[in-house]
Amino acid sequence: MLVIRRDLVEELVAHARRDHPREACGQLLGPEESDRPERYVPMTNADDADARGSDYRFDSREQFAVYKEATQRDEETVVVFHSHTRVPRRPLTDTGLPEAYPSVKDIEFMGLQPGVHFAIVAITGPDSPYDLRSFLLDDAGEVVEDEVQVVENYMFSHTGAGDVPDRS
């Protein structure tokens, strides 16, 4: 499960809208081994293979600079984010949005970062509704959906919904 603060979700969606129709990409960093995203770092999409901008690739020098700073702060990448925009080859779902599901190429690269959440925001335009989903690879390398729980803050989120009775 990906537990994520609402303000961070808003940052991801805003970045996806800003860069549409190109894919936006970035990473959420958090304290080492916390599995808790604390801050969003938008990344430059350095992919130039496709003029429609329907692929993404972190700029390698920028990635190193972010890594170095994160390491000094005892932070690590908790979530890798990218957007899916409307391109002809990508199927639309019943909601009319592009599928927020990892492509074959996405999955190849997900295999390099075990334990990292891969979040996708799907939009059709800068003002469209959006769909946010997250995925992980299991030990067998299969994609598994990673339920997203959006919270206002992390103070009580560690208890999990089933551990405490609902207030009446």
């Binding site: 990473q27 329907s54 993404y56 690739r57 972190f58 890594y67 890798v80 990218h82």
Partner: peptide, 11 residues
């Protein structure tokens, strides 16, 4: 020497 996973996707 620092080794990092490349981060990419799409298609």
């Amino acid at each position: 020497v620092t080794i990092l996973p490349a981060v990419a996707g799409g298609r």
